Amino acid sequence: MLDLTVEAWVLAVIASVAVGMAKGGLAMVGMIAVPVLSLVMSPVQAAGLMLPIYIVSDIGGLIAFRRDFDLQVLKTALPGAVAGVGIGWATAHIVPVAGVTLIVGLIGLIFALNALIRPDLGTVRRAPSPAKGNVWGLLAGYTSFVSHSGAPPWQVYVQPLRLPALVYAGTTTWFFAIVNWVKLIPYAALGQLSLPALKTAAVLVPVALISVWVGLRLVRIMPQKLFYQFITWGLMILSIRLIWQALSG
C-alpha cells in the first residue's frame, strides 16, 4: 500500500465518503475528493488513487439507479465525453492541470451564480440537444480525465433539462460510470494505477460503498426544489474551491 500519514488516511476516508455519496445521487459532493487529497499528495496521484474507488462505487450506484435514468440525455452527451477523455489522454503531458482546474471552476461559478440570480430560467424544462450535449459532454469528459471534476460542465447541460430528482441523479451516475470505465485504459497507460495505489484503494472501497447508500437515502427523501438548491450551492462552493486551488498553485 501507499505509505500514508495518519492525516492522509483521514483525508482519504473523507474523499471516499464523498465519492460514495456522489454515486448515491449527490453528484457535486464527489468533486471534493481530489482537492481534499491534493492537500497531502500530488493531484495526479490523488486522481489515480480515487479512480478505482469511483469505479467500484459506480457499481453500487448503477444498481441503485438501474431504472432511474434518461437514455436520451446519455445518448446526447456520451460521444462528446469519450472524445474529451481521448483529448485528455493525448494532451496529458502538455496541458497544466491548474489551467484546466481554473476553467472548470469558472464555468461552474458562472452557471451557479446565474441559476441563483435568475432562478426563473430553470422553471421550464428544456429538451436534450445533441449539439449542446456533446459540447458540454466533451468538457465533462476532459475535465473528469484531468481531475475527476467533470460535474460542473455536466451540470451546465443537464440542470436546465429539469429532470426529476431521482432521474437526474441516476442519469448523472450512469454518465460518469461510463466515463470512468473509459478512463481506465489511459490511466493505466500513463502509470497512474500502480499496485500500491490499488491496494490502498481496496481498503477505502467499503467506506465508499456504505456512503453510496447514505447518498441514495438523502436523494430519496429530499424535496426536488431543495435538491436543485443543494446542487446549485454545492456547485458554487466547489467552483470557488477549484478557482482558489488553481490560483494558489
Rank of each mutant, 00 (worst) to 15 (best):
L2S: 05
V29R: 02
P160S: 03
L2V: 02
G84E: 04
S147H: 00
Q72N: 11
V40P: 02
E7W: 09
A112I: 00
A197E: 07
I107A: 12
W136H: 09
A46Q: 04
L26M: 13
S149E: 09
W174T: 05
H93V: 08
P153M: 14
Y157I: 06
F65R: 00
I210M: 14
R118Y: 13
K199L: 11
V36K: 04
V179L: 11
W174N: 00
I32G: 01
N134R: 03
V205H: 03
Q72C: 09
I210V: 12
S239E: 08
V214P: 00
L198M: 12
S57V: 06
W244K: 12
A140P: 04
G133C: 07
E7C: 05
P79D: 06
V212T: 02
V167Q: 10
W89N: 05
M1G: 08
F145A: 06
G61Q: 04
V44N: 05
E7S: 12
V13D: 03
R118A: 11
T173L: 11
D120Q: 15
L242R: 00
G105D: 08
S16E: 00
S149W: 01
P164T: 01
A33R: 11
Y168V: 05
V56Y: 03
G122W: 13
P96F: 10
L74M: 10
G133K: 00
S211L: 13
I243R: 12
L163P: 03
A33I: 06
G60L: 10
